[in-house]
């Protein structure tokens, strides 16, 4: 606990950034090494656990994607055959398309709603603790129950939604048998399950915003909306980045909702088949582990590309502005 104080990241540097170049003497280097030791110890548990428990399974599944294996018997190498099959597999590309459509349909409204809810709950309105619990409940409602509830609510002929729509003089929508109906229903389920979750992340982030900024805004006579857009959003940027990245990963690996709603088959015309549902289908109902692995690694590539794009889009000019006020002024001339 008495190790020498380590170097601190420069507050205004676009994080994460290495310390600016200095002329290192040998003694200085040695001292720096000693200073850095606690930092490496601090980050080491994750990497150690990953090396022990994560690396072997990953290598194994990479190898599997070049083989044909049914999950218990002989493994035979087939070279690139699984990937060749994948490139020309209409069902896979259909699943890719579905995944992206559902991802856009769900993520965008979900994150906006979550931010709005968090902002509202952060105001001093009454019953906030009760509301928090309410928005939390979708996270713990069991899957079996969800299957029955959503199946009943969105049923084509007998569902509550269609009953309400016909009562209002609208046409009933074949929610669970038309390509768009299926996608919208799945997106609705994702929004239902994860809006509260993201709102809770935002809420946890909002509470950490230094309140001197709100004081300043008050003095300037800013409106609630101005406070939201000028202060809350910029300061929440690192957390928004986090939710965008995790929603991207979560959205691209969407599985539970379509499976709960439509079973392993992805619904009529496979309109609700997502990449991971297809992967599950191949690996755990067809027991084609080789192809399942190839699908998984194809998804890894797609997700990596999108994570990078999202990171660039959201973090913009680095997450500098989201730092402390001083840093903010500095970086904005």
């Amino acid at each position: 606990m008495t190790a020498a104080p380590p170097a601190i990241a420069r507050p205004d540097a676009p994080a994460p950034a290495p310390a600016p170049g200095r002329r290192d003497t040998r003694a200085r280097r040695r001292r720096r090494r000693r200073e850095n030791l606690p930092l490496y110890i601090a980050i080491s548990p994750f990497y150690l656990l990953f090396a022990v428990f994560g690396l072997f399974p990953i290598l194994f599944s990479i190898v599997l994607s070049f083989t044909d294996w049914d999950g218990m018997g002989e493994i035979s190498f087939v070279g690139l055959a699984q990937y060749q099959f994948l490139v020309t597999d209409d069902r896979f590309w259909n699943a890719v398309g579905n995944t992206f459509i559902i991802w856009i349909l769900s993520t965008v409204p979900m994150l906006f709603l979550a931010m709005a809810i968090a902002f509202l709950l952060h105001q001093n309105i009454r019953f906030t603790p009760l509301y928090r619990v309410a928005f939390f409940l979708p996270n713990v409602t069991s899957m079996v129950a969800m299957a029955i509830v959503f199946g009943s609510v969105f049923s084509d002929t007998f569902g509550l939604v269609n009953s309400a729509m016909t009562a209002l003089g609208l046409d009933a929508v074949p929610w669970l048998s038309s390509p768009w109906g299926i996608k919208i229903t799945i997106a609705a389920m994702v929004i239902w399950r994860f809006t509260g979750y993201n709102a809770i992340i935002y809420l946890a982030g909002l509470q950490s915003i230094p309140t001197d900024l709100y004081d300043a805004a008050r003095v300037d006579g800013a409106s609630l909306l101005q406070v939201f857009f000028r202060i809350t959003i910029p300061l929440m940027r690192p957390i928004i980045l986090f939710t965008v990245i995790t929603s991207t990963i979560g959205g691209l690996s969407l599985f539970t909702e379509p499976q709960v709603l439509l079973g392993d088959g992805g619904g009529a015309g496979e309109a609700g088949m997502t990449i991971v549902l297809y992967q599950y289908n191949q690996a755990f109902t067809q027991f084609d582990f080789g192809y399942g692995s190839a699908i998984a690694w194809a998804l890894f590539l797609i997700a990596a590309v999108f994570a990078i794009i999202n990171w660039r889009l959201v973090s913009g000019r680095g997450d500098g502005p989201a730092r402390r006020p001083r840093a903010r002024k500095d970086s904005r001339r």
Partner: peptide
């Protein structure tokens, strides 16, 4: 009736109602 088997609730409703 075009109600696939993975939608058990719908199937039950169809049988119960006589549809």
């Amino acid at each position: 009736a075009k109600i696939p088997r993975d939608r058990g609730t719908d199937q039950n409703a169809a049988w119960s109602s006589g549809r």
